[in-house]
Amino acid sequence: NALIKQAGLLKKIIDAIKDLIDEATLDCDNDGIYLQAMDSSHVSLVTFYLKKNLFEKYSCNRNLSLGINMTSIAKILKCGMSDDTLLLETNNPIDILSFKFESRRGHKLSQFQLRLMNLEMERLSIPDTEYSCIIEMMCSEFSKVCHDLATIGDSMTITCTKKNVTFDTTGDLGTGIVSLKQGVVGSENDENVYAASIKIVKPVSLSFSLRYLIYFTKASSLSNKVILHMGEEVPLMVEYKIFNTYEEEAGYLRYFLAPKVNE
C-alpha cells in the first residue's frame, strides 16, 4: 500500500527503463521497493530502489514479489496526470496491482488494475566495488555528450584523470572528443557552468556502447546530476538519485554497463 504524491515521478522512473527491459519483479518489503533486471542481451542491468520516504504513506507487512510487464505498467501510468496522487495497492491473493489516481483538486478519480505475472527472475549479486573514479556532472551535459558522439561513432571511451574527464569516439566520418574540466567554472551559485566533479583513486579509461548510454540518459529528468562510477575491468555504474517532493534523497536508479574489451 503506497501513496505517491506525484504520479509523474513513478512514470519518469518506468519510462527510463521500459525500453531496456521487458519484465521485472518489484520486490517490496517494509523499507521500500526494489527492482533489478538485465536487458535481453545481458549487456546492461538496471536497478532501482524506492525508499519508504519517497511515499506519503507506505506499508508492506510482508515481503512481496510483483511480476510486472514494463510496457503494461507504462501504459497505465500514462493514463494519470503527472501531478495526480497515486495509490498503489495489492490485494490477496496477489494477482493484480491497482492504481488509483486522484487529481490535485480531488475532482477526478481513476482506477486501473494491472494483471501481475509469475516471473522466475534470475537475480545477480552486485559486488560492493571500490571504484577508481567517481564523476559527477550535469545530466543534460552527459546526455548531450552521448547524443553528440553517437552521431559519429558506436562506442565511447571515457577517460578520467585528476584534472579532467574526456569522452571520445571514432567512426567512419571521423572522430569526436569532449573534455570536461574538474571543478566548478565561474560562479558557484550557477549550476550551468558546473563542469565535472571528479573523485579519483587511479586514472581509468574504458569503452562503452553508446546505444546503451543513450538509453540511460532517459533518466535525466529524475535529477539534475548524474554520477558515473568507473573502475578497471568492472562495469560502469551510471547513477541517478531520486528525490521526494521535499527534496530529500529517497532512492536511486542505477544502470550497469559491461565494458567493451579488446579481442
Partner: peptide
C-alpha cells in the same frame, strides 16, 4: 577491435 562483454562475466547469480 573491441568486443562487447556481458555482465554475467562480472556479476554472479545471487
Amino acid at each position: 577491435p573491441k568486443h562487447q562483454s556481458t555482465l554475467t562475466s562480472f556479476f554472479k547469480k545471487a
